[in-house]
Every structure is written in C-alpha cells, then in structure tokens.
Simulated assay, not measured.
Amino acid sequence: MSIGIADSRDLAAAVAHDAIDQLAAAVDTINQLEALLKAARVGAGRDTETARLLDLGIYAISVQTNDFDYAREMLRGRLDSSAPQKPSASKRGAPCPDRLPLKVFAAGRQHEAARDLGVQQAAISKAIRVGRAVFVTRQADGSYSATEEKPFPSPRSGGAV
C-alpha cells in the first residue's frame, strides 16, 4: 500500500505536532523537578556537599529546559515554514461524520483534544499508544464525547458472564 504525497505531508505534520506536544510535556516535568530541587536546596545549608550537588542539579535542569524549549520552537518554526498544510480547523469546525478514531481526532493536537474531551494529554497519548478503540463524536452543542469499543464478552474473562 502506497501513501500519497499529500497524505505523507499530513502525516509528517501530525508527527511534528505530536513531537511538539511531547517536548512541552517534558518541559513541564523538568520544571516540576527543578521546583523539587529548589525546595530541597533551602534546607541544605550554605557550603555543604549536598548544597553543591543540588545547585549542580538545578543548573543541569535549567540547561535541559532551555534545550527542550529551543528544540520545540525550532520544530514549530520549521513546521510553520514548510509546505502549506491543510487547515486543521476544518477538522474541528465542520460537523464530524458519525465519529472519528481518537488517533485521527488528536493528530497533531493532543493538548487541544485533551481539553476538548476533558482529560489529561497523557490519557490521549496512552490510549493512542496502546491502540485502544476510542472514537470521538461531536455533539449538537459543539462539544465532543469519546466512546471506547471493547469486545464482549471480554477475552480475559474466558466468555463467562
């Protein structure tokens, strides 16, 4: 099965947007670690070995945060300056066909999809990663709902009810 050029560009854009989302999540995690180290530093004294190690950790974290922020902005810039993309608003603004797979709904916009569904971005990422059969439907009021399809009876229960 071959993939068309337009489809491959859409796929590349979706992958790039997902990478930007993952970099943003990494920066959030690193910022939490930095806050933890700074809190520990307060009680470490002035010229102790522990204080010097905590200072080194805080420095390393700030460098890594800057590197991730730079990588995210460079990726976003490259994506914006690349070949014209289909406007993603058409996916969100137009009425949905009956329903969309979560992977399609969240392609390149996991944070926005999470907000639309009222969940954390990590939940979207994990559901896609493990291949859960989740489908998103747009409601008449413009909100979104998600439904997961599972086999019945469950394969784990051996068919017993």
Rank of each mutant, 00 (worst) to 15 (best):
M1C: 12
M1K: 13
M1F: 11
G4L: 07
S8P: 01
A14T: 11
A14E: 06
V15P: 00
D18G: 13
D18K: 13
A19P: 01
I20W: 01
D21N: 15
L23S: 14
L23R: 15
A26R: 15
D28E: 09
D28G: 12
I30P: 00
I30Q: 11
N31F: 03
E34G: 05
L36Q: 12
L36H: 06
L37R: 06
A39L: 04
A39D: 04
A39C: 01
R41S: 13
R41M: 13
V42H: 08
A44G: 12
G45K: 09
G45T: 09
R46F: 04
T50I: 08
R52E: 07
R52N: 06
L53W: 05
L53A: 14
L54M: 03
D55L: 05
G57H: 02
G57W: 00
I58A: 08
Y59Q: 09
A60E: 04
I61C: 08
I61G: 02
V63G: 11
Q64E: 08
Q64V: 12
T65C: 03
T65V: 10
T65Q: 02
D69L: 11
A71I: 08
E73W: 07
G77L: 02
R78K: 09
S81R: 05
A83E: 07
A83C: 09
P84A: 13
P84I: 10
Q85K: 14
K86A: 14
K86Q: 11
S88Y: 02
A89G: 06
S90H: 09
S90A: 13
K91C: 01
K91L: 10
R92H: 04
G93H: 01
C96Q: 03
P97M: 06
L100Q: 04
L100C: 04
L100P: 00
K103F: 01
K103G: 06
F105S: 00
A107H: 03
A107G: 09
G108Y: 03
Q110R: 15
Q110H: 08
Q110E: 11
Q110K: 15
E112G: 08
A113P: 03
A114Q: 12
D116A: 15
L117W: 08
Q120T: 14
Q120P: 05
A122S: 14
A123E: 05
A123F: 07
A127S: 15
I128V: 15
G131R: 04
G131D: 01
R132S: 12
R132V: 09
R132T: 07
R132K: 15
V134F: 05
V134H: 05
V134G: 09
F135I: 10
R138P: 02
Q139C: 09
G142I: 02
G142C: 02
A146Y: 03
T147A: 12
E149L: 12
E149H: 11
K150W: 00
K150L: 06
K150N: 02
P151K: 08
P151V: 08
F152T: 15
F152E: 09
S154P: 00
P155E: 00
R156Q: 04
S157K: 07
G158P: 11
A160I: 05
